[in-house]
């Protein structure tokens, strides 16, 4: 093969993606989000419409970006084994960074809880705070999450074995378990005897569980997309990166919840 001839073929397994407008769109939408959030919080912008517009912009550009990836991975066959390996590894690293964010919040929790300040009575939970009982709604939530871990494993195994019905059912049940979890969290928050403004206890409690809550919201979207894609025959027994990353995310969030449950609902109450 001459040099010229060789250059017409790609002799490596990686995917050279085409230029895409979405990265720059997402980043400038994020800038718009940051600026409008900052100005809205201080009353320079009245009302939330600018803020919501920029959130919609972020979500829209992200959706378009992911749509492109789905097209490349599923229809164009760009996701070779090597590319899949890279994607899974990259997502794993992203999850590591997520764990570190939670580590920061746990740090804040322990810093505040292990030697409670005199301003809150030197006790934890602080004087005047009625903590949420660990054996009430949070216990149900824990059971729901553990169950969701089981059902998604069931669905994953069915996917690998090519059993479409079982895979779909397992994923469907998982999706609804997570939805139920989020609804239960919502009920717990609206009925909580304290708010995020009630001293450091409320702050660290709602920061920890609230961040997890937001992640569960994201997880619902991811599971729903996976369910839709599975119904559309996008996943094969060997190629379902989207599903694998979602499963990893679910398990990690489950484990983080277990830590949250043990620390914030049980030990800290």
């Amino acid at each position: 093969m001459t040099h010229l001839e060789r250059s017409r073929h790609q002799l490596f397994p990686f995917h050279l993606v085409s230029p895409s407008p979405w990265p720059i769109t997402v980043s400038f939408a994020l800038m718009s989000f940051a600026l409008s959030l900052g100005l809205t919080m201080h009353g320079y912008i009245v009302g939330n419409s600018v803020l919501f517009t920029s959130i919609i912009l972020v979500l829209y550009s992200m959706t378009m970006w992911f749509r492109d990836i789905i097209a490349e991975g599923t229809y164009l066959g760009d996701h070779t084994l090597a590319v899949r390996k890279g994607l899974n590894y990259g997502f794993l690293l992203f999850v590591v960074s997520e764990i570190l964010i939670f580590a920061g919040i746990f740090w804040a929790y322990f810093h505040s809880a292990m030697s409670p300040a005199i301003e809150i009575g030197g006790v934890w939970p602080p004087v005047g705070i009625t903590a949420i009982g660990a054996t009430e709604l949070p216990l149900l939530n824990t059971i729901i999450l553990l169950a969701s871990g089981a059902t998604i494993t069931y669905s994953h195994h069915a996917t690998i074995e090519g059993n479409r019905n079982h895979a779909l059912n397992g994923l469907f049940i998982t999706l609804w378990l997570i939805v139920i979890f989020v609804v239960c969290q919502y009920i717990e928050y609206t009925n909580a005897p304290f708010t995020i403004s009630d001293g450091v206890y409320g702050s660290v409690f709602f920061a920890g569980t609230g961040l997890h809550f937001l992640h569960m919201g994201m997880l619902i979207i991811m599971l729903a997309v996976c369910y839709w894609r599975m119904r559309q025959y996008h996943f094969t027994t060997g190629h379902h990166v989207n599903y694998e990353t979602t499963i990893l995310y679910l398990h990690v969030l489950d484990v983080i919840w277990l830590f949250l449950y043990i620390v914030m609902y049980w030990w800290g109450a």
Partner: peptide, 8 residues
Amino acid sequence: TSFFEVAG
């Protein structure tokens, strides 16, 4: 919130 707020 009161993460770094002594009063809280």
